[in-house]
Amino acid sequence: MAAAGSLRSLLGRVRYEVLPAKATEEKVLAHVPRDVVITVTASPVKGLEPTLALTGRLAEHGYRVVPHVPARLLRDDTHLKDVTERLRAVGVDDVFVPAGDADPPAGPYQGALPVLRRLDELGRPFARMGITGYPESHPLIHDDITIQAMWDKRAHATYVVSNLCFDARVLGDWIARVRRRDVTLPVYVGVAGPVQRAKLLAMAAKIGVGESTRFLTKHASWFVRFATPGGYAPDRLLDRAAQALTAPSAGVAGLHLFTFNQIAETERWRRAALDRLGD
């Protein structure tokens, strides 16, 4: 019962990751309560502008919004300063800084660490700055290197967001490894919502031909998980990972739910999960 109560607490501390598509604002307003944090992704094809625009609009509606600011999308130091000023002007105090997928990068920043350092030099304009963690192996980077990267960034960042993981054991082992390396930053655990494969394919198609191909190629294993009968259910993953996620030593601050813009479905699932877990 204690684990159920702790899981319920985590479901009350969620972040919804959304893509800055045409209908995203309308979906968020229709289905997401104001106490849920919204994180807005950035596209290597479309650049930062759609992310910044949606962030500003959602902030005006009263949401706490966390934009993704990928290092490899920043053209230069002036661009970083402009982005910072624009976000601060709409009240943003939290940014997520991944390396990003742009290849080649738009400017001099190859990874997140130089951007985090530069933001420190600019006076830490954001109270909170998040970085990426990889429970399941990064396709190009060895696991030990990704954990070392978290260690290198720990003095600049204030929390870690784990990338998608579909295996409770792998997730628990990763959290333990991170803590053994004395990375003490709180972790938001990345979990896919109740994704419907047909809608995921439709969403991938809407983000543009080139980007859709990139998305489908990079995340082919996700589609297998979502398409296989019994292959993935967020409830099952959370139940199996409950002990690892709710242990005080884990330092899990909440859940980062990848909605893939299935926003209404994600919120319905969360409400049902809260009811299932009881008071």
Rank of each mutant, 00 (worst) to 15 (best):
R118C: 12
R117K: 15
L274K: 11
R154Y: 07
Y16W: 10
P108K: 06
V195Y: 00
N261K: 06
G210T: 11
D173Q: 14
Q110F: 13
N163K: 10
A30P: 05
S43T: 04
R75L: 08
L255Y: 01
R118D: 12
R240G: 08
H156Y: 15
G278Y: 08
D103K: 11
I38V: 14
I207V: 14
K46Y: 11
H68E: 04
Y188G: 01
A220S: 12
G193Q: 05
R8S: 10
A272N: 14
R240Y: 03
R117M: 13
L19Y: 07
R72G: 06
M129K: 09
R154H: 12
L216M: 14
D279W: 04
G100N: 09
G230N: 07
V178P: 00
V92E: 00
G62F: 03
W174P: 00
L122T: 03
R268I: 12
L122V: 11
A264M: 09
L29G: 06
R72C: 05
R75Q: 13
E60Q: 11
M150G: 12
R177K: 14
F166Y: 09
D152W: 09
Q243Y: 05
T78W: 09
F126N: 04
G231M: 13
H256L: 08
V209Q: 15
L238V: 10
V191D: 00
D101T: 07
W174D: 01
